[in-house]
Computed example of a mutant assay.
Amino acid sequence: MKRVHVAAAVIRGVDGRILIARRADTQHQGGLWEFPGGKVEDGEAVEVALARELKEELGIVVTAARPLIKVKHDYPDKQVLLDVWEVSSFNGEPHGAEGQPLAWVSPRELPNYDFPEANQPIVAAASLPYEYLITPDGLETPALLRGMQKAIASGIKLVQLRAPNMYDPQYRDVAVDAVGLCAGKAQLMLKGPLEWLGDFPAAGWHLTSAQLRKYASKGRPFPRERWLAASCHNAEELALAEQMGVDFVTLSPVQATRTHPEARPLGWEQASQLVDGFNKPVFLLGGVSANDRQRAWSIGAQGVAGIRAFWPEH
């Protein structure tokens, strides 16, 4: 069966809301909501197909777009490759040129709409930022919280509280403060035993690769309303992350780092191959900075994660 190549768009308005369309009842997966787009013709460039489809479907002319995520999905009756681009600028006023209902939805409202199963990773990618801050090790609690506060004030929207040298009670105390700091401003990801999950309902959870190996076969430990992420370093761990139903992963180390000098870097080419075979948003980690964002996007990654790269120095 030939995989149907579809170009789809996450169209973001100036207010950050995203445009979605409802499929006609007569279509495949009819009645569900989707990200606008359509089939890529043989020999056609994806961005050309996307521009053509959005002109036909919505009456808009795309002026700025970039790759967001690729998702391969097998339905019982067809196989699709969704080639998703983020459209950040366009001319014209979108309207349902084919009679389809449209809705402008904030990223946090997206999970309230019914999408085809293949669209779930796109919902995650559309809701996540392109930078993921991981807190540095070895800081005293006041400095750690001060730095987090500063980073959030500067626009960081996704923060992992990583403090491997803290004792459990100490980490839990800091986590309580971090939850308060992030409330309504950024998504906090905590690390630790899954037994703690119930104590921090507002936080997402970032699993270590060891936890992934231990728990993947049991599936997702909590409902989709909460973010679940994992640290991956190779194809085997990415497969476990897929099995567990995580929302996104970090893939590391892309390049050599001072924090893990013993870890063998993947390099950009291998990272690119791993991202290409994985159906969820991927943050590249290890020796990368905000300057590598475009390169990360070009290989299909969500963006970049970092410790020093995004940590306010003072």
Rank of each mutant, 00 (worst) to 15 (best):
L228P: 01
W205Q: 10
C232V: 07
Q211L: 03
S231K: 06
A239N: 06
W205E: 07
G204P: 05
K214A: 13
R224D: 15
E225R: 12
S217H: 14
G204N: 09
A235S: 15
C232D: 04
C232I: 00
A241W: 04
L207N: 01
K214D: 06
R213T: 08
S209E: 12
S231G: 13
A202F: 09
E225D: 15
F200W: 08
K214P: 00
H206P: 02
D199L: 14
G219Q: 08
Y215A: 10
P201V: 03
P201F: 04
G219H: 07
L238P: 01
P201K: 02
D199R: 14
E225H: 15
T208L: 05
G204C: 11
S217P: 03
R213C: 07
A203W: 00
K218Y: 08
A241Y: 03
W227S: 14
L212P: 00
A210N: 12
P201S: 11
E225G: 13
A230N: 02
T208M: 05
A239I: 03
A241I: 05
G204R: 02
A241D: 03
S217N: 10
A203F: 02
R220A: 07
R224C: 13
Y215L: 06
N234S: 13
L212M: 10
A202I: 01
A235K: 09
R213H: 12
R224A: 15
A230Y: 02
T208I: 05
W205H: 14
E237R: 03
E236G: 10
E237C: 06
A230R: 00
A202L: 14
S217L: 09
H233Q: 12
K218T: 11
E237N: 10
R220Q: 08
W227E: 03
H233P: 04
L238K: 03
A239D: 09
P223R: 07
T208K: 10
L240G: 00
S231E: 05
A229Y: 00
R220M: 09
S231H: 06
G219Y: 04
L207C: 09
S231M: 10
N234E: 15
S231A: 15
H206I: 01
N234A: 08
Y215G: 11
H233E: 11
R226D: 07
R224F: 13
A230V: 09
F222R: 04
F200R: 07
K218V: 05
K218P: 00
S217T: 10
K218A: 15
W227L: 15
W227V: 11
A210S: 11
H233D: 06
A216T: 02
Q211H: 11
S217R: 14
L228C: 08
C232N: 02
A241G: 07
G204H: 04
A210D: 15
A229L: 06
G219D: 10
A229P: 01
F222Q: 08
G198K: 14
A210R: 12
Q211T: 00
K214L: 13
A229W: 00
D199W: 11
G204T: 04
L207H: 04
L212K: 00
G219A: 12
G198D: 13
L240D: 00
A229M: 07
D199N: 13
L228D: 01
L238I: 05
R220L: 10
H206G: 02
L207T: 01
R224V: 14
A202S: 15
P221Q: 10
K218R: 15
